Simulated scan of single mutants.
Amino acid sequence: MRDFEIEHYNISSQKWYGNLYKQFKKKLVISEQYLEKMLKSKFTKHFYSSSQIDEFYRCVHK
């Protein structure tokens, strides 16, 4: 396809609750045990590549 562009819809940061969502993400604490369990699950491994899962780890451990 030529001139194909992805349009972004339903962007939470642009909604009425955008600031609340931003605060929630800043304050969210995920335990190591929960993170390990979720990122090692068969579902995560099915839908995401190893490099994507590694990136998830890096995002949490900033």
Rank of each mutant, 00 (worst) to 15 (best):
61 H>I: 04
2 R>S: 08
27 K>F: 12
44 T>K: 01
31 S>M: 03
29 V>G: 00
56 F>T: 01
26 K>M: 06
4 F>M: 11
62 K>F: 06
3 D>N: 15
14 Q>E: 15
49 S>L: 04
31 S>D: 09
19 N>Y: 08
26 K>I: 04
38 M>I: 14
48 Y>M: 12
5 E>N: 08
21 Y>T: 04
4 F>W: 06
60 V>N: 05
3 D>M: 09
29 V>W: 05
21 Y>C: 01
42 K>N: 10
56 F>H: 02
23 Q>H: 12
4 F>I: 14
9 Y>K: 09
39 L>M: 04
41 S>L: 04
50 S>H: 05
29 V>Y: 06
46 H>C: 01
26 K>D: 10
59 C>L: 15
62 K>I: 05
18 G>F: 13
48 Y>F: 15
54 D>V: 03
53 I>T: 02
58 R>D: 06
5 E>T: 12
22 K>L: 09
18 G>L: 08
43 F>N: 06
57 Y>P: 00
62 K>Q: 10
7 E>F: 10
30 I>Q: 02
54 D>M: 04
16 W>A: 13
4 F>H: 06
1 M>Y: 06
52 Q>F: 08
17 Y>I: 14
59 C>F: 13
40 K>P: 00
25 K>W: 09
7 E>V: 13
21 Y>I: 14
8 H>C: 02
32 E>L: 05
24 F>H: 09
10 N>Q: 10
23 Q>D: 11
16 W>C: 00
40 K>W: 03
40 K>C: 03
58 R>A: 09
20 L>W: 15
4 F>Q: 07
25 K>R: 13
6 I>K: 05
23 Q>F: 15
38 M>L: 12
17 Y>P: 00
14 Q>F: 12
22 K>W: 05
56 F>A: 03
19 N>T: 05
46 H>N: 03
46 H>P: 00
53 I>Q: 01
